[in-house]
Design a binder for these strands. Structure first.
Lengths: 350, 350
DNA sequence: AACGGTTCGTGACACGTGTAACTTGACACG
DNA sequence: CGTGTCAAGTTACACGTGTCACGAACCGTT
């Protein structure tokens, strides 16, 4: 007759609010009121104390699933990241995500990070997310998110779906990095330095394509205003071999500048060029992005596009608002800005 | 009389198994059997099809919280990371965590990452984790985890608590990085190269202490066997200013070698030493750890201790076993190995 | 004494799911 | 015809929580 599910372990059953109530000699409702701070004018101070002591004594921790079921909201904010292309990211995001989780906590949400394979069908990932009934989903760069996924999430009760750092999927809000601006800033800097034949590194690593295309377009846009300027994509993988191979045939490409996608690719390529006897910045100027500390350790020091992301606190505030006002029509809420940090690797041509 | 909680949004209510049952013209139990693959010999093929179609049509996604409540297990594996010291990590972990989540999925668990501030009381973090009733918690380097936290988790039903990359807290399992071995390998290499006055970088960044102490001990252990050898801690923060300041007073320290905690600190320090006119490796040998690609781009190329972590698949398998056999007594299950990758930054002294 | 207000609690329902136990025909066997 | 056996579903309960509506005292006023 006992229908209670198996508790495999022989360990003690976790205390519930019922245990606490019994222990304190009050009803379960009272426990709930006290522990959720709704006891004002309902429960005497003495009883409150009794309940608190009982909860402490028993080591009571509320059951998030039960609370979620009853209250109709999980309090989760799910941050989706791509599971496979992370190493090529740079450490730009790890810091942001951590800070963001901390900020969310202040609003009473629990930020949780979920890796999704970019290879598989986006639908499968969206289903896994939807099962958790998150109040919001933030899909970061490279995470699979299409229109159907947004639909799945919304139908399952997620009030806000936000694309972070890339153009939002239809139906989703956006906190965009303006990738074209990144390219434009890099391009403008190189053109101002007298460069006219600009290569743009397109990483061969899977999943970075959505990133490099708009950057390439940004460089092109900057070059359009400048007669005689030429812009060309250059493929590169994040390995020493690939960089050496590219450097070996560099002179055939006839370029006097390269925007290398990010600082890590830039450092890799710059080294390979130098090893091949090509002078930086004399023969070719190199520009990266993300402004990593390590880029300043090389000689010449690496010029970089610094990308200002909206600060975590601001993003958390926005997400909280979107959760509380689910009817807000999808829009792009905030863009990043990009600035050039000019250093020796892109000094003006003679 | 309606006690159902508010659904703030005006959006349609998410479909439940009841909706699906009504739509398909069967009972809710049948839906459950079909969708969980327990229909063999219980439900006719025709009915199964009807149910599947209905679920698809309605976009039904099961409610994880409800399932968790009923089944007594959340299916979650919580990966705890420190929320504040991440940038100093290097990209070593981001790749691992992502791969690990993917592997876990194959076992039917859902890996989820949770950032915890290292500043606050460990108890608060443990409580937040325990609320989710995870089947297992994996605390990575720097995540706050003490004996009381382990106790809180176990009492709330978590069957396995695993410390990853650091000595396990009492009561927890361990998948350890052998930090002493890392130090020992670096120390042995430097001693073999004729160095006798070895500095060991201790990062000033919060939360990395537990890391550097055993490494320092490892270097000391290696030096103990070598008469005349001297080992000293050297403090350094991950900023150019700190490195320059250290380099300026370097000669007072009278050291001919330094093990710089990891490659990022090593690159930073090496650059600062060079800028101060100190020859590497002539006057001082530099060794890092993690064997990053970027370390090979500097001149001289950086010697590094490569740390082989247990592969994600293996870790996932272990965690799955610990979940299924909760009585397994706590133990250290797997250690990392460390190898020296000798390059020019630590060439033999004259 | 009757009445209204305040203080301090409790009883009971609903959230969505998984599954053991039961029902209902249909059919076969003695 | 009574009795199993089996297929195909259904009924009903439990998981742990939040909260609405409803007491039961107690106190002060008319």
């Amino acid at each position: 007759m006992n229908d209670s599910p198996e508790r495999g372990g022989v360990g003690p059953v976790p205390p519930t609010s019922t245990s606490v109530a019994r222990y304190a000699g009050v009803s379960r409702a009272t426990v709930s009121y006290v522990l959720n701070g709704l006891a004002a004018g309902r429960v005497s101070a003495a009883t409150q104390e009794k309940v608190r002591v009982a909860a402490e004594e028993l080591g009571y921790v509320p059951h998030a699933a039960a609370r979620s079921l009853r209250s109709g909201s999980s309090g989760l904010v799910l941050i989706a990241v791509p599971a496979d292309t992370v190493p090529a990211y740079g450490s730009l995001f790890t810091g942001f995500v951590a800070a963001f989780q901390t900020e969310l906590q202040a609003y009473g949400h629990t930020g949780v990070l979920h890796g999704a394979r970019t290879g598989g069908a986006p639908q499968a990932a969206a289903r896994a997310w939807a099962e958790l009934r998150p109040a919001a989903v933030i899909a970061t760069i490279g995470a699979p998110l299409d229109e159907a996924s947004v639909e799945t999430l919304k139908r399952s009760g997620t009030s806000a779906v936000v694309s972070y750092g890339l153009p939002p999927a239809p139906g989703a809000h956006g906190i965009a990095m303006d990738q074209e601006e990144v390219g434009a800033v890099a391009g403008a800097h190189l053109l101002a330095g007298g460069r006219r034949r600009i290569g743009v590194v397109v990483p061969l690593e899977h999943g970075l394509g959505m990133f490099s295309t708009p950057r390439l377009e940004g460089v092109r846009a900057a070059a359009a205003a400048c007669p005689g300027a030429r812009v060309e994509p250059v493929e590169l993988a994040y390995t020493e071999e690939s960089a050496a191979e590219l450097a070996a045939r560099w002179r055939d490409l006839d370029l006097d500048a390269v925007f290398a996608y990010n600082d890590e690719y830039a450092m890799l390529l710059m080294r390979a060029l130098q090893d091949a006897g090509i002078d930086v910045p004399g023969e070719v100027a190199v520009v990266g992005a993300d402004d990593l500390l390590l880029g300043r350790l090389l000689r010449p020091r690496l010029t970089s596009v610094r990308i200002e992301l909206p600060p975590p606190a601001e993003v958390a505030a926005l997400v909280d608002r979107l959760i509380r006002e689910p009817e807000t029509p999808p829009a792009v809420h905030r863009r990043s800005t990009a600035h050039i940090e000019a250093r020796e690797s892109s000094s003006r041509a003679e």
